[in-house]
C-alpha cells in the first residue's frame, strides 16, 4: 500500500489508505472522479476536490467509522452512510453537502462539544478545531451534564502528555499504536460514555508498554495527546 501512498499529494489527508484495483468512476457532488476499486467514498471525495469533514479517519489508518461526521448521501440509498467506510461503486452518485447533512454533522459536533472544555474551543488549531470551523459550530445546547474533565492529565512521559478532557475517543491513537507502530500499548478502557484511552492497564504512559514512538500523538486530532515542547510554560488546564 505504501507504494501508492507515495503518489499522494503532500499535506493532503485522504482519510483512508489508498487501494490498488480496477478503476471505478463515480460522481461526487456532480464531479466525476475515478479511483481504484476498494477505495472509500471519502478518498474519492478528496480526489474530486469535495473533501468531507472527518475526525476519526486519516489515511495512515484503516477506516473505523466511529466519528460520524463524514456522513454523505448516496442517490438511491436510504440513510446517511459514513463516507470513510463506504466503498465506491461504479456510477455511484454521492452528495457531500446538503442541509440535512449539515444538520446531522452539527448534531454530532454538538455532542463532541458537550464533553470538550469550553475554554479551549476558541483558540485551538487542532484537526478537531478545524473541523468545528468547517462545519460551522462553536457551541452546544446540552447545558451541564456528565463530562470527562475530572480525569487527571497523564504527564508521566517526558515528551508528551495525555489530557483525557480533550480526548474525543476516536481511537486514532489506539489504532496508530496497533497498525502503524505495532506495539498495541493502548486500548480503550471500559465502554460507552466511560470509554477512556488507557495505556496498558491504565498505567501512566511511562510505566506502560508504550515505546514513545509518537504515532499516537501524530494521530490525535484534538491535542489530547500532545508534545510537551509545544507548551513553553508547562501545561495547565483552563
Amino acid at each position: 500500500m505504501w507504494n501508492e501512498i507515495r503518489g499522494l499529494r503532500e499535506g493532503v489527508d485522504y482519510g483512508t489508505p489508498p487501494r490498488q484495483g480496477q478503476p471505478v468512476t463515480l460522481t461526487v457532488d456532480g464531479v466525476e472522479v475515478t479511483v481504484p476499486e476498494g477505495s472509500s467514498v471519502m478518498l474519492a471525495a478528496v480526489e474530486a476536490g469535495r473533501a468531507v469533514p472527518k475526525l476519526c479517519a486519516t489515511d495512515m489508518l484503516e477506516s473505523f467509522g466511529s466519528c460520524r461526521v463524514c456522513l454523505v448521501e448516496v442517490e438511491g440509498r436510504r440513510g446517511f452512510p459514513a463516507s470513510c467506510t463506504l466503498m465506491v461503486a461504479p456510477g455511484m452518485e454521492v452528495r457531500t453537502q446538503s442541509e440535512r447533512l449539515t444538520q446531522l454533522r452539527k448534531g454530532v459536533m454538538e455532542l463532541y462539544l458537550s464533553d470538550f472544555p469550553e475554554a479551549e474551543i476558541a483558540d485551538g488549531w487542532s484537526e478537531f478545531h478545524r473541523t468545528l470551523d468547517d462545519i460551522g459550530i462553536k457551541t452546544h445546547g446540552y447545558g451541564t451534564g456528565r463530562v470527562h474533565f475530572d480525569l487527571p492529565v497523564d504527564d508521566s512521559n517526558p515528551y508528551f502528555l495525555f489530557d483525557p478532557a480533550k480526548c474525543i475517543v476516536c481511537s486514532r491513537c489506539v489504532r496508530a499504536c496497533e497498525e502503524v507502530q505495532g506495539t498495541f500499548a493502548l486500548t480503550i478502557q471500559g465502554r460507552g460514555f466511560d470509554s477512556k484511552v488507557a495505556a496498558s492497564q491504565d498505567d501512566p504512559f511511562m510505566q506502560s508498554e508504550c515505546v514513545s514512538c509518537g504515532a499516537c500523538i501524530q494521530a490525535c486530532p484534538s491535542h489530547a495527546l500532545v508534545e510537551k515542547s509545544l507548551f513553553s510554560g508547562g501545561y495547565e488546564r483552563a
Binding site: 498495541f184 500499548a185 493502548l186 478502557q189 471500559g190 488507557a198 496498558s200 492497564q201 508498554e209
Partner: peptide, 11 residues
C-alpha cells in the same frame, strides 16, 4: 499486549 487484555476485561 497487556493493553489489549485490559481493554477486553474492562469492556
Amino acid at each position: 499486549s497487556r493493553a489489549e487484555v485490559h481493554g477486553v476485561i474492562s469492556f
